[in-house]
Each structure stands twice: as C-alpha cells, then as structure tokens.
Design a protein around this nucleic acid. Sequence first.
RNA 1: CGGGGUGUAGCGUAGCCCGGUAUCGCGCCUCGUUUGGGACGAGGAGGUCGUCAGUUCGAAUCUGGCCACCCCGACCA
Length: 491
Amino acid sequence: MSKELATRAEDYSKWYNDLVVKADLADHSAVRGCMVIKPYGYGIWEKMQHALDKMFKDTGHVNAYFPLFIPKSFFSKEASHVDGFAKECAVVTHYRLKNDANGGGIVVDNDAKLEEELIVRPTSETIIWNTYKGWIQSYRDLPILVNQWANVVRWEMRTRLFLRTAEFLWQEGHTAHATAEEAIEETKKMLDVYADFVENWMAVPVIKGVKTANERFAGALDTYCIEALMQDGKALQAGTSHFLGQNFAKAFDVKFATKEGNQDFVWATSWGVSTRLMGALVMSHSDDNGLVLPPKLAPHQVVIVPIYKGDEGLKKVSETALQIVAKLKAKGITVKYDDRDTQRPGWKFAEYELKGVPVRVAIGERDLANGTVEVARRDTLSKETVKADGIENYIEQLLNDIQSNLYKIALERRAAMTHEANSYDEFKKLLDEKGGFIYAHWDGTSETEEKIKEETKATIRCIPLNNKQEAGKCIYSGKPSTQRVIFARAY
RNA sequence: CGGGGUGUAGCGUAGCCCGGUAUCGCGCCUCGUUUGGGACGAGGAGGUCGUCAGUUCGAAUCUGGCCACCCCGACCA
C-alpha cells in the first residue's frame, strides 16, 4: 500500500484528510457524515478523556448519563436554543419496522408513529434541565456539578473527519448554582481547565476569550472559548464554556428556596470539548511525513525496532530490547516492542513516523557490541546513538523535551501568524496573504461583524480575556473602539 | 441544500468520446534470498467496473434515478 501523503504546501486540506485516514485514526463510514474512529485514533481520544476526566473530578464534578433522545416539546422551550439547533436535528418519528406487504423489503410501519417525535440530542441542556427540576428544591441541593461523556448528532451539510461530523463524541458539563457569581466563576474555571488541557497535554497554545453575540451559544448569556491557530492560518475553536444565566431554569421552571426563604431561579453553566480536538491535534503538529503526537497523548510513546539477521540474531537483540521495555514500563512509559518478522526495519521506521510515535529506538547487533541504542525523535526527525545503560532516564527526559518543544514550536508559529490591522484594506490584505489571527478594532456591533464576515469570510474568534484597552477606530465603520478583537478565517 | 468534479481488485489508476466481459503500479499469498530508512527474484490469487433501472443481440463504455466522496458556496463544535 502506498502511504504517500499530499504535502501541506500543495493541498493542506487533502494533506489533512490523507493523514487522518493513512495514520489509521479514522475512516469514512457507510453512513453519510459519520466516521469510524479506528483503534489508533480512539486510543488518542481515550487518553484525552482520561486526562480531562481527572481534571473534571479534581474540580469537584461527577459523571452521569442522560438519554440520547429528547422530546420535541422540551426542545422548543428555550426560544434561542431552538433557533440555534432546529436546522440540524435528526428526528425520530417511528418506533417499528415491518415487512412490506408488496415485497419491498423492510419498511417503516406507519402504524407505529410516535405521538411525540424525539430529537436525537444535538446537546443536552433541555433534557438535563428538565431533570434538574426534580433534583433541586433548596439552596442545600446546589451546586450540581455534573458531566456526561456522550455522542451527539448535528445534521451537518458538509462534514470532515473529526473537524465536523454529523455524529461526534464529546463531554458536556452541566452545572446548577445558587448565584450568578458562582455560575460565572464555574464557567471561567472550566475554561481554564480546557486551556490547561489543550496547552499542557495537546501542546497547542490557545487564546482564552469571550464570543461576540453573533458567535454565542444558542441560549447562553456569555460564551467563553479557547481558540487555537492551525498551521494553515485558520482558527479552530477548541472548547467552549457557557454562562447560561437563568434561561434554562426559567424555561424548565427550576426554582430553589434561598437561605432567606425566597424562591429564585437557578443559575446555569454548560461546557464541552469534542472529538474535534483530534483534528486540532493533527493540524497543530503534524508534518509532510505524517502525524506528530505529543508524548502525553500518544498511544505508544516509544517504539522499539530490532535490527537483526536470522532467528538467532533476533533472539539476542530481543533480550536487550525486552530489558529496556521493562525499564521504560517501570517508569510508566508506554512502549511497544515491534519484533514482527514480517516487516523490515525501514518499513517500520516509515510506518511509525506516519503514525507519529514520539520516540523510536532501534537496536541492532552493532549496538549490542557497543552497548548503545539508536534513538530517533519524531518532532525533529533527528537521531543519535545513546548508551544503553540508563536509557530509561534519557528517554523519560526526551519525552518531556518533545512535549515542551512541540508547544514551543506551535507558540512560535502562532506568534509569526498573528498580526495587527489598522485599516480595512490592510486587514483584507493580511487575511488573503498571511491568514492567521488578526487583531483589529471593531465598533462592537453585530452589523459590522456580519458585513466583515460576508465580505471576507473572517469572523471574530473572540474578545481576549484581560484584553489590552486602547482607543482606536473600527477598521470597517471608523467608529470609536476601546480594544482590538481577534479576527480569523475559521474551521 | 445549490454549483462543479469523481466513483474500475485493499489503495492509486488505464480503458469510456468511437459498446464486444478490463490495463498497469503498489499492496496481498507461496517459495527462496534478505533485514542499520518503505528489499529482490520467481510463481500465484483477487473484479456482479458505486448502485438501481433503461436502450441494445451485447454496456465499464450510451441514457436516467439514487448513493458516497472531494472542491466551492450557505450552515456549523
């Protein structure tokens, strides 16, 4: 099988598609817009899940599970929520099939029509707030800090593996609080958790910010987000955290008795990250040779390839290799010893490069004689010969170096692709010639944002948190502005 | 969902205009030689030509419907 990839320079989007498929992360399925996440790709997702899940637990959250189906009536209780999602909902209308009397095979049984249609969840606020109504009577029942790992369906027109699929996996946190302050604090806390995860595990730098009204989640008062920049200069929203105010409490009539004995509506948040992070991971670090994975999320952090002649040779090399495997495992490093005799070393090198394994160790009979091994790192594609003695410490350090190097490179790339524009002409020029994040003054109106989007395809990614305040003029309308916001073309 | 394109063995393709059961490379299987960056030789297997219907003595090839994928728009995590 030829594994050659398109290069980023010649066709970035083909490169991405090729890579996802050829590195065995995912595949298109028989169902339109839906993907099969293959074991190697799912292994990365599982590592993401484990890290995030621990962070959620450490911040006081617990997991639960709510139904896949949502009664249509629930869905329509929050007006802006319906507006936001109505156009992309899968709807269940029947509950039975039958054999066609005319021999047309299996058909929907029209006698089995549901009295009330069920929506396949595009997100779970409504079913959850309907449930919370029964859980909350008093301030003593608050806060509720629940997360669920689930699949959701949004009937997208155009899909791309991981970046936008009709069904995707995610987690959604849904919390309930007695005060607005506490809910806002929760919203920001989870944004910090996301930023921490994406930067320290995925090695992808992000900008924390708040969305403009146009880009806000349907039903939220404020949407906070982390925005990452991909190698092609397009932005990608990597996670969102919403302050929902009392919108859902009001829609589902969720009130609680306050300490003072009054009745008040509950304050809400919701926050989520999805398998889209896989796309961000791929596009942040990978190169024309294939995937590059940060050690903290790589299913195999190290692969060891033996080089030998004949069965006897393999036996000798394996003895040393397995000792190294044991030492690495003792340090908690995940290592694969690939002693398959069906592939040659060069083939394996190329394969693990394509799959982004951070560190490759090659051991041959020459090494046995010299007491060395050859260590190659995926991020720089460099290799060196290292003493076998104490190799586990060397590799442990190397993995840390790779992790921080990937972050550093991504951060430098982002800096190089971040610009300021002071006029609309300059803005358009930057957008077409360089892409990336563009800091520019904006008059704060939806109309202006909308116009810029129509004319340039760029959207306001966010208003950065703790943004520098400076007087200026909107690049589009010329009206006064107090700060620059971040524009970019986005995924 | 609109416009454009593509669909032939696991993958990439030739053939299609001008109708006669399919080409090549990679991969796969067997044997042997090999093994420090995708090995070499010899032999072999694998196809209802996306799918359904139509035209025809005969369809990969012509016509129509449908499906999937890619690119561009609208929409979006």
